[in-house]
Design a binder for these strands. Structure first.
Lengths: 225, 225
DNA sequence: CGTTTAATTGAAAATGCTCAACTCGGGTGG
DNA sequence: CCACCCGAGTTGAGCATTTTCAATTAAACG
């Protein structure tokens, strides 16, 4: 199957998911799909970057490790997100499937070849890198200067913004959230408990991973403090 | 004066300073220079991004603020560095001169116009965005998962790598370093004292901003722990 | 020079972490 | 089918690291 990455008509894009992939082909990019089981590695840090990925189903975490096992998750990639995009030939994060996940694969080299002749594709890559950059820059402020409740609130707001339905069904564990926010899992749990008791949110269903935001106003107020 | 941004012959670049600016002109970019006094704002967060800047002399800090004054410095820009590069029309950081600083200005719109017709320039912008991204990604790990001594060690190694001479003359205050590392200025001071007493470094001259690394091996060992 | 800003150091307080106990659900296998 | 086990989550208590507050010293700058 041959598809072409198309340009959005707005000059910059609101989410990675906005990148359309259609079949009006002149600059052809070979496509593939793979499904990964829960917990399996998609690629490792420092491995050669052969592909760029788009999440079709499931969720992915990308992270860095210190030698003693401390982990920093850089981002969660949900349905529609494109990740694994690097300029160099080597990945700077490890990527793992959080749950059973289906990915669309795009050969990096093919993309490069297309970009060589097609300015539009190069600009697209630039846009995506910039969007990526914005997320990481905001996350830096969170990690450097926000307290635990502010971090968890920011996380919930971020996830809530990507969720169409009322009930957020988070695919990641408390440990994942903790490693994303630079906290311990216990601190994340305590912050969620405090927010629940304060009437900001509630757990529904049998798991504690299905969350309903009860007071978006106050949650955002905590986030943007 | 009309200059052209030229491509490096390596596929990706080790520092922003590696971007040569020469006068072999076919895609012309208008250039200008401005000098800023110590402490003055170059641009503010959310202001329209009219220019891209290159440090000719001095040093710049770029940061984000929370409403109650907490500050996160995203990067220090030293001589040769290019900053202020955004895809959108709006800056995402505030930029300030740390000391008396001379900047080279490049009109953003001119650059965009050139990039529209010149793939090489677009790829250059992409390379710079990716390099930027790498720095911020590494800094995320530091802010999320490293302790105070590891952070200060990483800062010193980073500065040391950009300094040709034996003596590092840091332009920034302890507060700046603290806001870069997500610490209090007292914690930075204590970490430096501990490293000095451990024989890793020493202060020279009358100020405490001139630092000599005595044991690069051990300093790096702390950084890469 | 004198005043202001920067840096260091100590002591007390706060925030978040570690360790530990306990609960709850969802498999798994006897 | 049910008991058990395991992973995930919550909660408490004590501990560690970092922050805050404060005092002092040193340096920079008009």
């Amino acid at each position: 199957m041959f598809l072409r990455i198309t340009r959005n008509n707005t000059s910059h894009l609101s989410t990675l998911g906005d990148f359309g992939i259609s079949s009006q082909s002149d600059a052809a990019v070979n496509l593939n799909e793979i499904t990964y089981k829960k917990g399996t590695e998609i690629y490792g840090e420092k491995e050669p970057a052969e592909y760029v990925y788009q999440v079709k189903k499931g969720a992915v975490r990308t992270y860095k490790l210190l030698s003693d096992g401390r982990r920093q998750i850089g981002a969660f990639h949900l349905v529609g997100d494109i990740f694994g995009l690097v300029d160099a030939s080597t990945h700077r994060f490890t990527a793992e499937a959080i749950v059973k996940t289906t990915l669309r694969l795009i050969k990096r080299r093919t993309l490069d070849t297309v970009a060589d002749t097609d300015t539009v594709v190069t600009r697209e890559l630039l846009s995506m890198a910039m969007l990526n950059l914005k997320h990481v820059e905001d996350h830096m402020l969170l990690l450097g200067r926000k307290d635990s409740v502010e971090r968890v609130a920011a996380f919930l707001v971020e996830m809530d913004e990507r969720e169409a339905s009322q009930v957020m069904a988070l695919p990641m564990t408390r440990r994942d959230i903790a490693d994303y926010l630079g906290l311990s899992l216990e601190t994340v749990s305590r912050a969620l408990s405090r927010m629940r008791h304060a009437g900001l949110l509630n757990f529904v269903g049998s798991t504690q991973r299905e969350i309903v935001i009860l007071d978006r106003m106050r949650l955002r107020a905590v986030d943007f403090k």
